[in-house]
Amino acid sequence: MGDIIANRGKLFFKVNPSLKFLLTSSLFILYLFVHNLNTMIWASVFFLVLYVFACGLSGKWSFGFVLLTLILSLFSASAMILFGKGNTVIFHYSLIMMTQESLARGIMLGLRTFCFSLIGMVFATTTLPVPFFYSLMQQLKVPVRYAYGCLAAFRMLPVMGEELGHIRQAMRVRGMANQHGVKAFSNKMIRYLLMMLAQSIRRAQRTAIAMEAKRFSMTEARTYYYEIGWSVYDLYFLFILLITVTSGFICSSLFPVTPFTNVLDH
């Protein structure tokens, strides 16, 4: 992702990854209990603002992502909009029945997905795997074996990409690529998949052996090359998130844009 992530100097990069992780994921719980469409609309606006300022993506990628996410989020709500329950019919054609209630619910759902995607993106683009897992071990006391397992696995990713290249080359060199027809194609696909999996498993085994040969211990205490601590940025982060969330709630009660204060009501 090296060239996509533009700016590592951004504030969110400096926030403690565990804190960032806990707070962002607790947002899910929070918004699970919000059924007020206005709150969701305002929250979307504020999270969009947050996204624009905090996201680690570079400009053109960043804009493209928002657009794409918005469209996909509406897609994900389409079933609810077209086939949901409700009384006030807006549009009816054969099986499709759009009602005010279902439209509201649909938009509610779409916006939820939209918000969480934005938050997820902010998190993903400002959190590097290495400090993230180190922080999980140090702050959240995640057992070393799982954290190092994840670290090692993430480090294998680029190699896996190369491996796919090697498999393709082997098929080419050995003449498998020249075979045509549906059967040959499906054979090839299954081979690819199996070889990819087999290679990844073998690589994981080898890495485990290499780690143990270097006296990695799953149980004993250890020191850390990277120490992830706390800083004033964590306070800023907390503050920014609080403002974003509360402004959503405040605005929704001051400036309700729609009459749907509880989309679950009939």
Binding site: S76, S78, A79, A152, A153, L197, S200, Q205, I209
Partner: peptide
């Protein structure tokens, strides 16, 4: 350690598959 690493690597491969599947899934919705 081998079990853990293999499990996580498998998960990662599938995580990647999910990531790539995501847009397809969204588009058929």
């Amino acid at each position: 350690l081998t079990d853990i690493l293999v499990t996580i690597v498998i998960a990662l491969v599938f995580g990647l598959v999910f990531r790539l599947m995501g847009p397809v899934y969204d588009l058929v919705q």
